[in-house]
Every structure is written in structure tokens, then in C-alpha cells.
Computed example of a mutant assay.
Amino acid sequence: MAAVATMEGFEGYWGPPTATMDWCEGNYMVTPYAAEFFNSLTSMFIAVAGILPILIHFRRRDCMEWRFIIAFLSVTIVGLGSVAFHGTLLFEHQRWDQVPMLWTVAMILYVLFEQKHVQPAYRILPVALFVYAVVATLATSKRSGDMQWFSFHAFFGLATFLAVCKVTLFYRSLPTDMTELRKVMSYGFIALGVAITVWLMDLKLCNQLHMLPAYDYWNFHAWGWHLMVSCGLYNILIGIWYHRLKVVLEKDVSLRLSPLPHIAFVPPKLACHTGVSEKIGKLNAEERARTMERSQALSRALTEEFERSIVAQAVAEVIPKRNYLGAYG
């Protein structure tokens, strides 16, 4: 691949940018192998925000429904795609960033719509979200300059707006006594608000921001957007998962805020899924009868043993009294 010389004197390994967006950070400022070094580096925050909940709760993965596993892993894939996009500024790698974002927001919408239902309530919902994601993927994968940029933000923005509305309604429905959950959700809202603000500033005020000293090294997109959106997604998804376990599935769990928001299971060996109870419920009548018969036999044996011990104790008390009276008879 042909190299491209930059104003800093470096040669870019990946060649001229072909992506529809070149962010405010200067290209190849640090190394010729990363187009936007700090944007690429801080994209790992997003990947970590997705995989960290799975690692923290790995011992209780039986308590994590597949909807949450997929949602968390989707966030991780977005982060890795962002690393590739910012590191190369190639259009094919830009799709690795944008397409996972479309599928991730679709998965989060499924989680939100089914949040308060023990069993799936909307059978058409997965089909509708799948169709949306496929259409959005096809529309944003075409290399057509401004139209590609508009298509992606139209599809992604619509789904994100719907997700924000659902999360807001969810937050407003929380009881006031669920203080820990409300705190975690509030942290998530604040982080996302800051993230969107600095994203817009970096996008619209690039020339003005470059007047600040060494802005390429601490730019808002890298250290603001990537970091804050990671914190926001982490807190909100943890809060939603906790609410489902605690309120919907009625599990004995608590929400801990330190050192990171996480879910504590009480007792540690809590059975989260209904698989155990379902298996017990499927015992046939003969097995239940045998179990009941053994229980009754054990109960009778214990009763008889108890009665014999009472009789023996009574006899032991009576005999000495008779001997005592006989001595004075």
C-alpha cells in the first residue's frame, strides 16, 4: 500500500484516508502505523466497557441472560472496530466501527422493550430489529461520501433516540427507595451527556480547538467522547441488568457502587435461572410418591424412637421411687 507523507514528516503506513470522516486529531502525529493514534488508543475504553461486566460477573454467568451477554459483547466489538477505523482511516475499517454500532443499538432496544417481561412478550420485535439492522447496514455500507455519512447518522440517530426515550421512561419509573440504582443510572446519563457535548465540539469547532496547545494529544473525541461514552454505557447496562434480576426475576441481589458498579449475589450460590425448579417440577408422579413415602417412613421412625426414649425415661424415674418406698415399707 502506498504511503502518504504528512505535514509532520511521517509517512502513513495505511495510505491516504478513504473514510468518509477524518476527525480533528492530526493524522500520523505519533507513529506512521496509526492514523489517529489517540483516537485509536482510547477506543479500547469502549471495548473494555463491554467485556468488563462479563469478566467481573464471570463466576455467576449462569445469572446473565443471553440478551445481556450479546449486548455487552456488541459494545466490545464496537470498540475494536473503532480501533481499526481510527487507526487506519480506511472506509472498509470505518464499516467495522459503524455497522456494529447499528447492531448494538438494535440489541439494546430489544433489552429495553423486553425489560419488564419474564418471558418474551413481543414476538415480532426480534424480526423488526433484525430487518432494521440489515437495512441500515446495507444503506451505510455504500461508499457514497456525504450520503453515506447521512445514512448512517439517520439510522443510528433514530434508533438511539428511541433507546434514550425508553431509558428515560425506565429511570422515571424507578421507586425513590432504589437509591443505588438511581445513582448508577444518573452517572450513566451524565457521562453520555458529556460525551455527546464534547463529540459535537470536536466535530464543529475543530479549527478553534486547534488553537489550544497540543490539542492533537488531548483532543475531545479521544479523551472525552470515547471515555465518557464507555462510562455511560457501562453504568446504564449494569443498572438495567440489576433491575431485571432484582425486580423482574425476583433474585436476591444487591447493587454495589465501589470500586466499580457491579452486582453482588446473595447467597453466592444463588440459582438465577429457573432450570433447577423446572427440572424438579418435571419429576413424574412415581418419583414424587417414592420421595414422599421415604419421608413418611423417616418421620414414623423418628416418632417411634422419640416415644421409646420418653417411655424409657419415665420407667427410669419410677423404678428408683419404688425402691425408695420399699426400703421404708
Rank of each mutant, 00 (worst) to 15 (best):
F220V: 02
F220S: 11
F220T: 09
H221M: 09
H221I: 03
A222F: 02
A222D: 05
A222Y: 02
W223H: 13
W223S: 03
G224W: 08
G224N: 07
W225G: 06
W225Y: 15
W225M: 11
W225E: 14
W225P: 01
H226C: 05
H226T: 08
L227M: 13
M228Y: 10
V229S: 04
V229D: 07
V229P: 07
S230G: 13
S230T: 06
S230R: 07
S230H: 01
S230K: 09
C231P: 02
C231N: 09
G232F: 02
G232V: 09
L233P: 02
L233S: 11
L233V: 13
Y234T: 05
Y234D: 10
N235F: 10
N235V: 05
N235H: 13
N235R: 03
N235C: 15
N235Q: 11
I236P: 08
I236F: 08
I236S: 07
L237E: 02
L237H: 08
L237C: 11
I238L: 05
I238N: 02
I238R: 01
I238C: 04
G239L: 01
G239K: 06
G239W: 00
G239T: 03
I240T: 11
I240V: 15
I240G: 03
W241P: 06
W241S: 01
W241V: 00
Y242W: 12
Y242H: 09
H243F: 15
H243M: 07
H243R: 10
H243D: 01
L245W: 05
L245N: 07
K246C: 08
K246T: 06
V247A: 03
V247P: 00
V247F: 06
V248Q: 04
V248R: 01
V248L: 10
L249M: 14
L249W: 12
L249P: 00
E250Y: 06
E250P: 01
K251M: 07
K251D: 04
D252M: 11
D252I: 01
D252T: 14
V253L: 10
S254Q: 11
S254A: 11
S254W: 02
S254E: 13
L255R: 04
L255P: 00
R256G: 07
R256N: 13
R256K: 14
R256H: 12
R256P: 03
R256C: 12
R256M: 11
